[in-house]
C-alpha cells in the first residue's frame, strides 16, 4: 500500500518577524513552519503505515528551505519524500498549484491514498485537495475526521456543519483531513536519528528526498506559476477600525478596571451599532 501526504511550509503568523508595516508578509524574513493543518494529514498517513504497513511518501512544493518540513515529516516516520522546487512556480494560484502537484504525484508513482491538510494557514482556501483529485480523476473525501480501510475501500467519517457522515469510498482516493482528527504523535527516535544521518550523508539524502524540477516531472511551465494562474491578487487593503475607538482599560488594579468596564458598557447602546 502506498500513501502520499502533501505538506506545505508556511510563514509562522504568531511570530512578529516578517510582517510588513502594511500588514503583508515578507516571506523571506518570516519564520517558517509546517502548515498546522498538515499535521493532521501527516498523522493520518502515518496511521496507514502503522495499521496497514503502507509506505508513506511526503510531497511538498516550495523553495529550498521547504526541505525543513520534509525532515520533520521523516522524523515523524515518513519513509521518503519528493520536493518540487522550481522558480517557475512562483505566484501559483490554487489551480496552478494543483496542476504542479498532480504532476508530482504522478512522478512519485502509484498510490492508494493521497492525504492533504484541510487548508493552509497562508492561503486558507481548502481548494488544492479537491482540485488535485479532479486532475487525478479519483473520488475525494473532504473534512475526514477518522477512517479505516476495509479491503479495497476506505470507510471514513466526515464532519460537516450539520453533523457527521460515514462514507465508503473506493481506492485510490484523495482525503483532506479535518483539524478535529487525531493529533500528530511525537517524533520517533528512529526518525530523528534518520534525519541526522540524512543531514550528514548527501548520497543517502538524495535517495530518500528527491528534489525535482518541472522538467523532471514533465509539467508544462506555461500551466504553472504566474502564467498558469487564472487569478491574481489585484489589490489588498487594510481593514479599517470599526465601532470607533476602543475604550481601553489598563495599568490600574484589576478590580477597578473590571468595575469601570462594567459601568461603561451599561451606557452603550448595544443593539443599534
Amino acid at each position: 500500500m502506498n500513501s502520499f501526504v502533501l505538506i506545505k511550509q508556511v510563514p509562522d503568523q504568531s511570530a512578529k518577524a516578517g510582517v510588513n508595516a502594511d500588514g503583508t508578509i515578507d516571506r523571506a524574513k518570516a519564520k517558517r513552519m509546517l502548515n498546522p493543518f498538515d499535521c493532521f494529514a501527516l498523522e493520518a498517513a502515518l496511521q496507514t503505515k502503522r495499521l496497514y504497513g503502507a509506505t508513506v511518501t511526503a510531497i511538498t512544493m516550495g523553495p529550498p528551505p521547504a526541505i525543513e518540513i520534509l525532515y520533520e515529516a521523516i522524523a515523524h516516520g515518513v519513509d521518503q519524500a519528493v520536493h518540487l522546487c522550481d522558480r517557475r512556480l512562483a505566484a501559483s494560484d490554487t489551480l496552478a498549484t494543483a496542476y504542479a502537484l498532480y504532476n508530482t504525484v504522478r512522478y512519485a508513482g502509484d498510490f492508494d491514498l493521497v492525504f492533504c491538510g484541510l487548508q493552509t494557514t497562508d492561503g486558507d482556501t481548502a481548494q488544492v485537495g479537491p482540485q488535485l483529485a479532479e486532475r487525478l480523476q479519483v473520488p475525494q473525501v473532504t473534512y475526514c475526521e477518522s477512517f479505516e480501510i476495509q479491503g479495497e475501500k476506505l470507510i471514513a467519517r466526515r464532519v460537516t456543519e450539520s453533523g457527521t457522515q460515514v462514507v465508503q469510498c473506493p481506492l485510490p482516493a484523495v482525503v483532506t483531513v479535518a483539524n478535529s482528527a487525531h493529533r500528530l504523535a511525537y517524533r520517533t527516535l528512529r526518525g530523528v536519528q534518520r534525519v541526522h544521518q540524512l543531514q550528514r550523508d548527501e548520497v543517502e539524502r538524495n535517495q530518500v528526498i528527491q528534489t525535482v524540477s518541472l522538467d523532471d516531472i514533465q509539467a508544462d511551465p506555461a500551466r504553472c506559476g504566474l502564467k498558469g494562474s487564472p487569478t491574481i491578487v489585484a489589490a489588498t487593503e487594510k481593514v479599517g477600525e470599526i465601532g470607533g475607538k476602543c475604550v481601553l482599560f489598563q495599568g490600574k488594579p484589576i478590580e477597578a478596571m473590571v468595575s469601570d468596564l462594567l459601568a461603561d458598557i451599561s451606557l452603550v447602546e448595544l443593539v443599534q451599532r
Binding site: 494543483a98 482540485q131 486532475r135 475525494q140 473534512y143 466526515r158
Partner: peptide, 21 residues
C-alpha cells in the same frame, strides 16, 4: 459550506478556471 468547498474546486479544476474561496 463543507459542500460548496468540496464541490467548487472540482468544477473550477475541470473548467480550468479561477476560483476564489
Amino acid at each position: 459550506t463543507t459542500t460548496g468547498r468540496d464541490l467548487a474546486p472540482r468544477i473550477a479544476a475541470y473548467l480550468e478556471t479561477g476560483l476564489t474561496a
